[in-house]
């Protein structure tokens, strides 16, 4: 497939608010993204605006405050998706098409049961949650992330294992918790850990470098098949070095650290 033939569905409803930069990020790696309202996928739109999920090659859940997030973050969006396009979404993931969720998108993927999805592609009920930050506050910060994936995740194939990137984040609920006592072990066994927060130079992350208190410093995970990635920090905000918060004081390549996430998935699809 040629890059421009890769159709990306950037899904939105009221309150998803990072769709423009998600759209631009896929544009920058040559794909053909489209902003699609959930109602367009659910047949609840005029004919000319109706869309089918199966016509897309990648599904991206942008950040934001979907439906206001007045209950658990991502819960309302997930419930609406399940009721509107649940079977289509399951089929999409089963066919191992890539799905990316950033920030509120990650929260939505967890609420949908698409992550961590230890059994099957999509659990009936959520088996993890992104809980309130330890600080109790919304945190808008830079973070250092280490790629800890051993090769399973489709979105990090172009990032060397152990490489440290700088992605910013902005959320109030990013602490990944689960009632499963073997949660972290299973993630490790299945090669589902993708990004961990680290301190400067790769040191163990303490607050604010781990900004939310996530156990084992986990910032992003994928599903066992590696085609669904959810992460709290925002790769789409650092596509050039000029949106890195410290770009005026350090040297580095023109390309921003976030670009590699998008190049990775495109490489797989355009091979």
């Amino acid at each position: 497939m040629k890059a421009e033939d890769v159709k990306v569905c950037v899904i939105r409803i009221e309150g998803t608010n990072c769709e423009d930069e998600m759209y631009q990020a896929f544009r920058m790696v040559g794909a053909s993204p489209e902003l699609v309202h959930l109602k367009q996928l659910a047949g609840k739109a005029p004919d000319h605006a109706k869309r089918n999920l199966e016509d897309y090659d990648i599904l991206a859940f942008p950040g934001g405050f979907s439906a206001g997030d007045y209950v658990r973050a991502g819960a309302i969006f997930a419930a609406r998706i399940k009721s509107d396009i649940g079977p289509q979404l399951r089929k999409f993931v089963e066919s191992e098409k890539p799905v990316l969720g950033v920030c509120n998108g990650f929260q939505t993927l967890v609420e949908l049961g698409l992550l961590p999805a230890f059994e099957g592609v999509m659990s009936e009920t959520p088996t993890a949650a992104l809980s309130t930050n330890d600080s109790g506050r919304f945190e808008c910060r830079p973070t250092y992330l280490r790629n800890d994936n051993r090769g399973n995740c489709i979105f990090t194939s172009e990032i060397k294992k152990g490489k440290i990137s700088m992605f910013p984040l902005a959320h109030a609920e990013g602490k990944l918790l689960s009632a499963d006592p073997r949660f972290l072990e299973k993630l490790e066994e299945n090669d589902q850990v993708v990004f961990r927060y680290v301190g400067p130079g790769g040191a163990k992350a303490v607050y604010p470098w781990n900004p939310n208190g996530s156990p084992s410093d986990i910032a992003g995970i994928c599903n066992p098949a590696g085609n669904v990635l959810g992460m709290m920090p925002h790769p789409e905000r650092v596509m050039t070095r000029y949106t890195h918060q410290d770009w005026t004081s350090c040297k580095g390549p023109e390309e921003g650290d976030g670009m590699a996430v998008f190049r990775s998935v495109m490489k797989k699809l355009t091979k």
Binding site: E21, C140, R141, P142, A170, M239, T248, S249
Partner: peptide, 25 residues
Amino acid sequence: AIRQFDFEVRGATALGPMVGKLNAA
């Protein structure tokens, strides 16, 4: 206050309200 506000949404902020060292700006 500043860190409670998302000053980078839209992915276009080249210089924000704080500058210098990361997390110690």
